[in-house]
């Protein structure tokens, strides 16, 4: 398959099941909601070492938030329910509770309920106040700037992590421009995050390593500097490869994000140095969700 001169590999991206939740952070204005959200989703690029993958889903205007203030919705993904609950709680406690004027609400009502502010309330040292409104429990925790309002729990749902595609270009700047274009379009979609810095990862990994202690290592088949000395997957003209990783609440959400992202890359086309689109295919070792590139772009 070739789109605008860009070859789409006959391969699939391999993704795995995750647990996910959404939290809504509001504040006096969008600036402070964003600061809190950025802090909460910081150091959350990969479950390999961060404990979770998290990102900002989108900015919410006042009419979309529970308390009528500007807000930001964030998605957090982890490999298991316990890990997700732990990450959510520590991040909420250190990054949202501490952030001026913030309030924190559940972004998913269905699914198993996991603590959001349920345990943060103890920061109130007995002065905290519970309010049950329309079946939802809120905690009001007195803090130095007034009151921190938080919903007690949020819903945990099954999700999919690790959807991805690789952009193979003739140069590093061209690969980056293409990935930036893809991210701009993908960020417009709900229910997905691209957890790596700026949404783009340059150190794509393969499963396993020559070092027994490591579960993942550099994807040498796509490293351009190793073209001559390893079993490469790159043709001679490829000088740079970048990857976009997508976590989504459902397989369909990732499908859609991949389609939009790949299309944006292909719109730049071969004339801008984009030669191929491939995907992280680990031969079935990584996970049960397979995203076939040519089916997605058909």
């Amino acid at each position: 398959m070739i789109i605008n001169g860009v070859s789409i590999d006959e391969t699939f991206a391999e993704a795995f099941p995750m647990k996910a939740t959404r939290a809504i952070i509001t504040a006096q204005n969008e600036k402070w909601a964003m600061i809190s959200a950025q802090a909460m989703t910081g150091f959350a690029t990969s479950v390999i070492a961060c404990g979770c993958e998290a990102g900002i889903e989108r900015v919410l205007d006042s009419s979309e938030t529970p308390d009528g203030r500007p807000g930001v919705s964030v998605l957090i993904f982890a490999m298991g329910g316990k890990g997700l609950a732990k990450q959510l709680e520590t991040r909420a406690g250190q990054c949202v509770l501490t952030s001026p004027t913030s309030a924190l609400f559940a972004g998913i009502d269905e699914g198993l309920q996991i603590p959001l502010g349920k345990n943060l309330r103890y920061f109130g040292d007995g002065f905290q106040i519970a309010k049950k409104i329309d079946g939802k429990r809120y905690w009001r925790v007195p803090v130095m700037d007034g009151e921190f309002l938080t919903e007690a729990t949020t819903g945990r749902v099954d999700a999919v992590g690790g959807g991805n595609f690789l952009v193979l270009a003739e140069s590093q700047p061209q690969a980056l421009v293409a990935c930036e274009a893809a991210i701009v379009e993908m960020k417009k979609l709900p229910n997905v995050i691209m957890p790596f810095p700026g949404g783009v990862v340059r150190s794509g990994s393969k499963v396993g390593s020559k070092y027994p202690a490591l579960g993942a290592s550099t994807n040498d088949a796509f490293c351009p500097t190793l073209k001559g000395i390893t079993k490469t997957d790159l043709s001679p003209e490829i000088e740079s490869v970048m990857e976009i990783v997508i976590d989504g609440l459902t397989k369909e959400d990732i499908d859609k994000a991949m389609r939009v992202g790949i299309q944006a890359v292909c719109d730049l086309g071969a004339e801008n140095g984009i030669k191929r689109i491939s995907a992280g295919n680990y031969g079935g070792k990584l996970g049960p969700f397979h995203f076939h590139l040519q089916e997605i772009m058909a």
Binding site: P66, D67, G68, R69, A103, K131, I133, D134, Y138, R140, G146, E147, L149
Partner: peptide
């Protein structure tokens, strides 16, 4: 005197 964030949610209910 205070501005309390839970009040708009309460009134909305």
């Amino acid at each position: 005197t205070h501005t309390l964030a839970f009040l708009p949610i309460l009134f909305k209910s």
